[in-house]
Amino acid sequence: MKKDLLSISDLTREDIYLILDTAEAMREVGERPIKKVPTLRGKTIVNLFYEPSTRTRTSFEIAEKRLSADTLNIAVATSSVLKGETLVDTALNIEAMAPDMIVLRHASSGAGHLLSRICKSRIINAGDGMHEHPTQALLDAFTIREHKKRLDGLKVAIVGDLLHSRVLRSNALLLTTLGADVWVSGPATLVPIGIERLGVRATTSVDVAIDGADVVMMLRIQHERMQGAFFPSVREYFQTFGMTRERLARAKADVIIMHPGPMNRGVEIASDVADGPYSVILEQVANGVAVRMAVLYLLAGEPEEALN
């Protein structure tokens, strides 16, 4: 594995399977009476979050604590960033206190790459703007593999706001690397030009995308990143692209429904689908901890001294 995890493209196929297999072992730690192992004792991990986050930040923090790392959270709302400090200056100051890893969430694409160039600490991208969210794609793959026992040859439909979605980009890279057949669908205004270069097939018909799908992944309509009028109304969006039980009938009988959260019920997904029997949305959250433990452990990367 490379020094940092900034993009799924940093990982080989073998790296991805190693992370998923390690996560299987890590999950067992969370089922013990004492949910903690001493593996990262003495390591300091800074969670630097420039965007609001509940799931990802909590998930990373629980993963870090289960591995016995010392963790601290910097939420921008209470930091010197409000006094005008730049990302680079904040990072250099944190770096001066010698943490081992920095988990970064930032609204600008490529923020992790910038820190990677100036920091010795290992950088984990926890979502950078519209670029990538690699640990989300890894936990999605873990969840899919658990249900389908494989990833290659599966039809995966990803539906919604493709333009602003870092979850889409990471998932498309990961799933195509592992041999899945990935279809994407969304309003033409929210389909970025050149999306085929991610190795996916694009259609504006959600019914075509989910026809015979093994997995349907819904993406959130990201109101906070939308400055223009991308579709006429939320109501129309739901009617054309929202995932309803009727629409889902086109997918395979054992389809699983995924959503990276937070959900907009009645916008991209109907409540009865979100809470229904095909939904694995809360499993995704549970698996996130195990997958992040695996990433932290593998990136802490060190020795092979024999201990017989």
């Binding site: 593996t39 003495g42 390591k43 593998l298 802490a300 060190e302 020795p303 092979e304 001294e305």
Partner: peptide, 9 residues
Amino acid sequence: LMRHAVGPQ
């Protein structure tokens, strides 16, 4: 585990 920064975990 964390003694040297060489090699994979």
